[in-house]
């Protein structure tokens, strides 16, 4: 039997007294794009934040590539090869594009590896190479989103956690971002994607989980879920 790259079992997370995750189970295989869809407050972002160590689970088990992540601090999890791109383009507006990217390579010490990763990021986002000396704050919304993703790729993660990458972008840019995500995946990075834009997410994902109030209510290949009656009604806006 194949061991998945990431396995989450019976995950419970609380914010104070609020029971945000009520027993999430999910798996991500090496090379996949897996997406979590669901309404606001369903627990999608919390799931990502728990995996990356930004919040601690109260119960359950997170296993990544043979390591148990439950009580591991966030910076150690990054070193294992998980990189989390939090919601809402958190780039440093007063740093240049280059400095922002170098921040992503914070955990790396070898100059050669950093140069190689930088070359890959510029290869993927030629626009960032053109603007490398510009301040982050002067980039357009789409470019800032590219920078956030590029910054995460600088640490050369095996698993990329993307939280709402299409948030607040014009439709044309949304398409471009999803195209990019597919491309990153094709170049060998496994992706766990959280999206409000269920249609676009299901289109590029291999598998999907549907979350409702902190529980997984539906799971399966993305193509199947796209045809599922309930999903179509609740998340794809069809009658």
């Amino acid at each position: 039997m194949r061991v998945p790259l990431l396995r989450v079992e019976n995950l419970h997370t609380y914010y104070g007294h609020v029971h945000a995750l009520k027993g999430i189970d999910l798996e991500v295989e090496e090379g996949e794009i897996v997406t979590l869809i669901g309404a606001n407050g369903a627990g999608k972002s919390t799931t990502l934040r728990t995996i990356s160590g930004l919040v601690r689970p109260r119960e359950g088990r997170i296993e990544f590539n043979g390591h148990v992540l439950n009580q591991m601090p966030a910076h150690k999890i990054v070193q294992l090869g998980i990189c989390h791109v939090p919601e809402g383009r958190r780039i440093f507006t007063t740093l240049t594009v280059m400095e922002n990217l170098m921040m992503g390579a914070y955990t790396l010490r070898d100059k050669g590896t950093i140069r190689e990763n930088l070359r890959r990021v510029f290869d993927l986002f030629p626009r960032l190479a053109e603007r490398k000396n510009q301040l982050g704050g002067t980039l357009s919304g789409g470019e800032q989103q590219m920078l956030t993703i590029g910054r995460a790729l600088m640490s050369q993660p095996r698993l990329l956690l993307l939280d709402e990458p299409s948030l607040g972008l014009a439709p044309m840019l949304v398409r471009a971002i999803f195209e990019t995500i597919r491309e990153i995946n094709a170049r060998g990075t496994t992706i766990l994607l959280v999206e409000q834009n269920a249609r676009a997410a299901l289109k590029i994902a291999h598998r999907a989980y549907v979350l409702e109030t902190g529980r997984v209510v539906l799971a399966g290949p993305a193509q199947e879920l796209m045809r599922d009656e309930r999903v179509r009604k609740a998340y794809l806006g069809e009658r």
Binding site: A74, V78, C83, M103, G104, Y106, T107
Partner: peptide, 24 residues
Amino acid sequence: RLGRAWMYVREDEMAAEAMGVDTT
């Protein structure tokens, strides 16, 4: 390197943490 870590923490602690900075 520590100076850079401080700058990241100062500007956006959560992003710093997500990028592998041991903020504590």
